[in-house]
Design a protein around this nucleic acid. Structure first.
Lengths: 272, 272
DNA sequence: TTGCTCCTCACGTCACGTGAGGTGGC
DNA sequence: TTGCTCCTCACGTCACGTGAGGTGGC
């Protein structure tokens, strides 16, 4: 018979741990003194405690351990638990390795002194959206090519939608680079939710399915967002993701002419 | 201005999370309605939230994040945090990989149907101990060689100690295999704690320093413990440890002649 | 009037660590 | 009498998830 302190010392655990295991019925003292409440353990219980500690070390919860030892640790059940834990730990390792790459990507962006704070960048699932848009081909990115699309064509789309009884939501654009040409197709329009959109020449309605995206929020003017875009692409590559779709811009808060209050979300679909 | 639900949807978090961030002062709504208590967020806060989520994703605690964003996320401080997290995650990964090897070692023992339940095996730090022992050379393990040591020589050691006024603690043995010979040196004696041991011919007092050991508890007779010992060595090797000292036996509960209640702890010093 | 969104508590999670305040044997 | 060990509460941990019970606008 050992006192709780001696037993704890022999096993290399704290007395609090032993009391806790008693409380949850995992390992109750062989004898508890009636008057003093002192706990006494039998040395034979050292084997039981070892078994508990071994299972705990593998990351099995005390509840599971209790069931397991109550059943006498049948080989089949133990094998199942171990296989399960193997899968769980493997998943945890690869999640941590992914995380490690993301940390490295942020550090890399810091080192190269990227203007852009990649630390504002987040990986999330984009909401599904349905947009009514027009499509215009341009020669290159850069405001001298892009601006006309927004200034000439977009107001007409707005008008057409409103005239058809459709209430436009936030502005959305995505940039497609078809193979075999140098053109860039600017698709730009408005979120229309679940509203029916009557046929308007030149206007297409598409569903943007929900997808994993790397997202960052930009405040202010859309001049000079090319740097931000490039930093984002670099972050994606460094962090071990792969670009998996056309980049999008969501004009969350449209504020013309006071561009400083404008809020734009950039999204690039990604996959592992 | 967005309601909490809309803001949550845009950011891809739960409303509970937003309320929590408000509670802890990490991200308070731009406006709270006086009468209804409704929270309203500014779209400009989406960038702040993204930053919080990005840092959280790296495993940084909300408290740390609060300090960081309060200071405007200075590059130096951010770099420090990221480096720290890098080290922490790396440590977590390698701990998980170790764990994975231990799981595999248990599974391996199950597969080969080892008599011995390696699941009783635990890695712990042995208590430091001081023992007074005699040393006898034998030809091989096996009871026909080992038993005489215990039956002939050990009782005399006990007597000598007691006669010298020393109170022997538990029995301890360790088995040394010196290079260049086939002999096995059986060191066997008693724990003497901090008691002074007078000189007795043939008796040596040594400190067994605390060390990381793989330990398992055996109940019953010491016949046929060779299988257990071999399974233990196999477990050690499969689980990625390295044997780092001579194996020990601690006779935690000495019960002769009723050997079924005997409790022996086997320890093998290990390192990574 | 019926859904929908929003509100405020407040408990639960997991395995103990860490006091606080008190008692019994050498 | 002074240490030492042991005892029983009971809060704290971390970032929310999950009801419970209730309210205000379309």
């Amino acid at each position: 018979m050992l006192s709780i302190g001696d037993f704890a010392r022999v096993a290399g655990v704290s007395t609090r741990t032993l009391r806790h295991y008693g409380e949850v019925g995992l390992l109750v003292p062989a004898r508890v003194d009636d008057s003093s409440g002192y706990r006494y353990y039998d040395l034979a219980q050292l084997a039981d405690l070892h078994r508990i500690l071994a299972l705990r070390d593998l990351g099995i919860g005390l509840d599971e351990i209790r069931k397991l030892v109550a059943d006498g640790v049948p080989a089949e059940q133990l094998r199942g638990m171990l296989r399960l834990r193997q899968a769980e730990i493997t998943a945890a390792v690869s999640a941590d390795e992914d995380r490690l790459r993301r940390v490295a990507a942020h550090l890399d962006a810091l080192e190269r002194g990227d203007e852009v704070r990649t630390i504002d960048t987040v990986v999330k699932n984009s909401e599904p959206s349905r947009i009514a848009h027009i499509t215009i081909a341009v020669q290159a990115y850069g405001s001298e090519h892009i601006n006309p699309v927004f200034e000439l064509h977009l107001p007409r789309l707005w008008e057409a939608l409103v005239n058809s009884g459709v209430e436009p939501g936030i502005g959305v654009a995505y940039y497609e680079e078809p193979k075999g040409t140098d053109d860039i197709l600017v698709h730009v329009g408005y979120d229309v939710g679940s509203q029916a959109v009557p046929h308007v020449p030149g206007v297409t309605t598409v569903e943007l399915p929900p997808t994993e995206v790397v997202s960052t929020v930009h405040r202010g003017s859309m001049q000079e967002v090319t740097d931000l875009f490039e930093a984002l692409v670099r972050w994606i590559e460094t962090s071990g993701y792969r670009i998996n779709g056309w980049p999008r811009e969501l004009y969350r808060h449209w504020a013309i002419p006071d561009e400083t209050h404008q809020v734009t979300e950039f999204q690039i679909p990604v996959a592992r």
